[in-house]
């Protein structure tokens, strides 16, 4: 392509250089190394042994690893699907009705996004503790039969971790959808009303199709967050009891620094990266397809 005289060309590389050097050294090179390490059986100390794709096939055959990816799928329901349902409901209400205190409500529901996950985890540990606030609440409601140590329970630990995800993602999804809904022209709603559509019909005919793009963004953000759950599991359960809350990110850490299976840890990390890229690509493709 032709360049007008005086337009900067090569100087662009100088502006890119400092950012690129750091980025290449601390991100591109390590991901290349991760791929390399994942092909070895390596304890991090002695010489590694070539393993080919064994570390990858183990993700399918090793029960604990397979369970970890299964748990990540369960977390996607809690981090993405339920918050989407909650967010659509709340945003539709907030957009529709002139509610007092909207600013305050938005500040409150968005707050979990900015609090360090370690703090979130400490707070929820307290909520779920045997003598914690959830059991106190249940006791006050006369439901003593339901009380338990939620995070130490084989059945309830994973949903309990999931609810924390629902808690901090719902506000993000609500605010995101609300921004989208406020851009829907009023005439569309008036036209629907004139056609005799009720609130529910109106929601499915007008609101939902208009926020398709925002839904895609919300799902991308929340699904990635679900797949990357680490801090929360590290602080609340460390994958326990048994392996009932083990998730891929925690397995990466646990294998590399707990069990000395660095090759396996790298393979899980690479797989996780590929899964994240594939899912966000698929979600955005689906959203684009719907709009054209």
């Amino acid at each position: 392509m032709g360049r007008p005289p005086g337009e900067p060309g090569r100087v662009a590389y100088l502006y890119l250089l400092p950012a690129f050097v750091l980025y290449a050294a601390f991100l591109l090179y390590p991901i290349g190394r991760a791929v390399q390490i994942s092909l070895y059986d390596w304890d991090g100390l002695t010489l590694g042994r070539w393993a080919g794709l064994d570390n990858y096939t183990a993700i399918l055959s090793d029960e604990r690893l397979r369970a970890g990816f299964g748990h990540a799928l369960v977390l996607i329901v809690f981090y993405a699907v339920i918050p989407l349902a909650i967010g659509l409901t709340l945003a539709a209400i907030l957009n529709h009705a002139k509610v007092r205190g909207l600013g305050f409500f938005r500040t409150v529901v968005f707050l979990p996004q900015v609090v360090a996950m370690v703090v979130v985890a400490v707070a929820w540990r307290r909520v779920y503790a045997p003598d914690g606030t959830l059991n106190a609440l249940l006791g006050a409601l006369g439901l003593d039969g339901l009380t338990r140590g939620w995070l130490g329970d084989h059945t309830f630990a994973l949903p309990a971790v999931g609810v924390v995800g629902t808690w901090f993602e719902s506000g993000l999804v609500t605010v995101l959808l609300l921004a989208g809904m406020s851009r829907v022209p009023m005439e569309l709603y008036e036209a629907a009303r004139l056609d005799g559509a009720g609130a529910v019909r109106e929601f499915f005919a007008v609101t939902l199709p208009s926020v398709r793009g925002e839904i895609a963004v919300a799902l991308t953000l929340t699904v990635i967050a679900a797949l990357r759950t680490f801090d929360l599991v590290y602080v609340t359960t460390r994958g326990g009891p048994g392996d009932s809350t083990s998730v891929p990110s925690f397995e990466v850490y646990h294998r590399a620094f707990g069990l000395g299976q660095v090759g396996s840890a790298a393979a899980i990390g690479v797989t996780l990266t590929v899964v994240i890229f594939a899912i966000s690509f698929a979600i955005n493709r689906l959203a684009d397809k719907g709009t054209t």
Partner: peptide, 21 residues
């Protein structure tokens, strides 16, 4: 596009090789 890779890159994937290097 190379820079965009980093936006979605989970830090779990790079932290392990970085530690050993």
């Amino acid at each position: 596009y190379l820079f965009m890779l980093g936006i979605m890159m989970p830090s779990e994937a790079i932290a392990v090789p970085l530690y050993f290097d």
